[in-house]
Design a protein around this nucleic acid. Structure first.
Lengths: 253, 253
DNA sequence: TATCATTATGTCAAATTAACATAATAATAA
DNA sequence: TTATTATTATGTTAATTTGACATAATGATA
């Protein structure tokens, strides 16, 4: 979210003609029960939700800030994090409507005049996350991507753009497995792709394409437990992935 | 570039733990004599070059700032502008080596402690540009993309990333024509693609693919003047392009 | 009117994609 | 123990797209 900096000292540029505030917002995505989930925070004493986020420290790079925020909210590190866009509309942050909702937490005159925010999305393994609120919030919770309420700031828009970026990147790079545990079955991976892309895929074609990439390694073991044929387990194979990257493939011959 | 704000009032966050400075850098690309060109500025009294850019005004959105900077340096508006990345390394901006080079222009203690910069690239029609320096610079000039000197800040890196983004976008969307005049021939377009992608393309396959997109409109007239067969002129067709966009096309069936 | 440089164009083989149905099997119920 | 159920694993064929390839046409100039 873009609110954690609201206790910071008075905005710098009070006398400057230039804006000076930058925050970072994180669209943390998980996959659970065949549904994409996003981690949201509820602000103290309100029913208002927003994305996790906050300002960037002077001694850390923007990427490091994204890692830090992710770590603080989920307990996870070494996670796939992708910067996807800077959101720079003039009125995205400092709006009376928002200040009114949060006035018991922040005196309206303490707000920065403006804050621009850089969006990152993270792909995490759902059960590994320990959702943790920050100083301004009292609840940190997964929300189904189709059940998200109206959020503070421009965070509904941010999530929308994050998903569009994810879909595009997913068509280029096999990053889907990052939302799954280390070992997963092909049907699980397929359901994940279907969820993100929003349409069904043919299992035979999916398998051919996915295995054809040569980046998945089939294990000896199968996943047992269902009342049906036990599926093979797979793991992502970093070696093969690197080999694939060198090839490259695009629009023109 | 990230230097225009150096005369702004003292950095805000002097007492804040959070960074507060944001600038914008613009990779303005043109195409001339079968070469990609980028517009660079030479700083007053130095041989140091950088990208055009500057801080963002409080009353303008980040996109608007990009338009403004582009307009100021080239005289052009309504141009293809694409945000491609935020550059947020801690030491990208405030480095002794840079301050030393520009100390006759800016007192070293006047520099912001840190500035993060958002990169945009612009695709312009080369002959339409009127290169214009800003307050800190005395020369504004096109440079061949392969002849760029060592630039201030992280601008060499910025250009590299801009080109990578452009190549990727070019494989998705037929944006190449934006670097050409309103009317152009297929061989011209092909040479442009070859230049950006860095490899030769087969003219028959290129034509088939490009015309197959249905977004080019062949004019009656041909371009005369060369000692050879006169090529047809084409124009981009916005109608067809929109139709194409709705289709979508990706990795999975 | 011959020459030169460049443009315009078509075919075929190979690779990729889309569409489609059935046999295998782990768990559970009968 | 056997049958049932739900799900997984897998192969073929036609359609489409891609890659590789060479020649005839023509505007300007000599």
């Amino acid at each position: 979210m873009s609110g954690k900096n609201i206790t910071a000292k008075q905005p710098a540029g009070k006398s400057s003609p230039f804006l000076s505030e930058l925050t970072l917002d994180c669209v943390i995505l998980g996959f659970h029960e065949d549904q994409l989930k996003v981690l949201l925070l509820r602000w103290r004493g309100t029913q208002e939700w927003s994305l996790p986020g906050g300002p960037i420290r002077k001694e850390e790079s923007v990427d490091q800030a994204a890692c830090r925020i992710l770590k603080e909210r989920t307990g996870l590190k070494d996670i796939f994090l992708q910067q996807f866009q800077l959101f720079g509309d003039v009125e995205r942050y400092n709006r009376n409507e928002i200040k009114e909702k949060l006035k018991h937490l922040v005196e309206p005159e303490k707000w920065f005049e403006r804050a621009v925010s850089v969006g990152y999305y993270a792909l995490v393994d759902y059960p590994k996350v320990a959702p943790t609120p920050d100083a301004f919030t009292e609840e940190c919770q997964w929300w189904g991507i189709d059940e998200i309420p109206s959020l503070l700031f421009d965070h509904n828009h941010l999530i929308k753009i994050a998903l569009e970026s994810l879909r595009i990147q997913l068509s280029w790079q096999p990053i889907g497995y990052k939302l799954l545990p280390e070992q997963f079955t092909l049907p699980e991976l397929q359901r994940l792709y279907e969820t993100i892309l929003g349409r069904t895929l043919d299992p035979r074609n999916f398998q051919r394409k996915m295995l054809g990439l040569g980046i998945l390694y089939r294990l000896e073991t199968r996943r047992k437990g269902g009342a049906h044929k036990a599926p093979y387990l797979y793991r992502f194979n970093k070696q093969h992935y690197k080999a694939m990257l060198t090839k490259g493939s695009l629009f023109f011959s």
